[in-house]
Design a protein around this nucleic acid. Sequence first.
DNA 1: TTGTATGCTTGATCAGGGTCAAAAACTTTG
DNA 2: CAAAGTTTTTGACCCTGATCAAGCATACAA
Lengths: 253, 253
Amino acid sequence: MTTPPKAIRLPQIKVACSDCSLRSLCLPFGLDGEELNRLDEIIKRPRPLQRSQRLYHPGDEFRSLYVVRSGSIKTYTTTTTGDQQITGFHLPGELVGLDGVSTDSYSCTAEALETTSVCELPFSRLESLSGQIQGLQRQLHRLMSKEILAEQQLLLQLGKMSAESRVAAFLVSISMRLHTRGFSETEFNLTMTRTDIGNYLGMAVETVSRQFTNFQEQGLLKASRKHIQILALDTLREMSGLMQCEKKPSIPN
Amino acid sequence: MTTPPKAIRLPQIKVACSDCSLRSLCLPFGLDGEELNRLDEIIKRPRPLQRSQRLYHPGDEFRSLYVVRSGSIKTYTTTTTGDQQITGFHLPGELVGLDGVSTDSYSCTAEALETTSVCELPFSRLESLSGQIQGLQRQLHRLMSKEILAEQQLLLQLGKMSAESRVAAFLVSISMRLHTRGFSETEFNLTMTRTDIGNYLGMAVETVSRQFTNFQEQGLLKASRKHIQILALDTLREMSGLMQCEKKPSIPN
DNA sequence: TTGTATGCTTGATCAGGGTCAAAAACTTTG
DNA sequence: CAAAGTTTTTGACCCTGATCAAGCATACAA
């Protein structure tokens, strides 16, 4: 989401889970050193995706789950009439690929919104390993349900909210998720276009744009194109009407 | 959902998975006789819930998943302002309780819409068993992701559809799910109120009602209160704009 | 630099569906 | 069998947000 300005990226060929800053949000949570190594062995780390490159397409055989390591990904289905329906945005530490689990083939397209690197988890190997490591199984289940339920919660709320609340909720959600992952909660870059946001939130681009303008006029944030600086997070949170589901999570995720 | 009129319910104390008509939709799918028995051993079958009785409340410790055996259940969260947000309706063969997996306590209320019996699956025992039985683990994962993704898919569509399409989509969804479970796809009883439907679909009760009237005037269905008889399922399906996700599933679920 | 494509913003118009109000159909209770 | 409470339906009015139509701003290529 946010790219640390001019950060120098060292070659990250052999990044192990044990060195990963997302460790506590990710599958390794709760594993000891030995278990971590066994997990590490099955994880592949493919070369980074460039913007608009795809991780998988609808119909591709389901083999792996992916965790976003850096960057961001959007997933979308394509309707019979050809237009796309965005099903989610995925930030670092979040799972991608669950849409393949139930039918053994992916139902969405997963597309990088910027340069993005992922960890690939071959699912059958993950399943057999989690049959052996109690804590891994538990965490896998946690992540699977958490990923989707958070999404669902958001969508349900969106159903009956005003355009203003929706956009507020969207921003708060992004802010919160980035914050959990160690980024600033008040300043970040949106990697998706306004059109994407509108598509996801079920409203016209124009309306999204107008809401951004309104928020600026009310002094709640500064937005110049993709770059967002939130000035009154609390107010936005109130407007969103979301009862911050993630307050004091018993599990640090 | 549909109650067979005046069906005589025999005392169902010791119903085993092997005798259950929902077997192929449920966890037992793909298990052999021996494995089935081991699964059967951990399953509890509590006494049926009466209408408006609750299976669990928000905050209750997460111990079990439930599968609806007969009847139907609604799950909902309650907002800070006190009004409820329905998160789903659960028909026979469908899982309830996934909202508890990620935080170890339920986040919803699960309430019976009619006399409802469930199978209770103690989750920790289920996890350890699925560590031992390959096929059980796979099916558990399938069900977990399927349950929630189907829901999500529906919600996303709803976001940008007209009131007419939404109600059509809702009816088609119910019809399809009942059909998969061996009930009629054209004639059934809605066990939830119009208010519930409106709440779930994110629209006013009045609008729901008006849509039912419209559909009747167009000769697409007959509705007298809860009892629905669909006359033109195909037309409704078209109106819903849903590209029937469940067509020819590779796994019979 | 200029051109072209894409993304963002702003304005004007209009209808879908929310809200308020009330009656009708049905259910439950005393 | 009233009486009181739900649930569903219908009508009237009005506001939010979609749509159409331009006009800007930014990015990238030639």
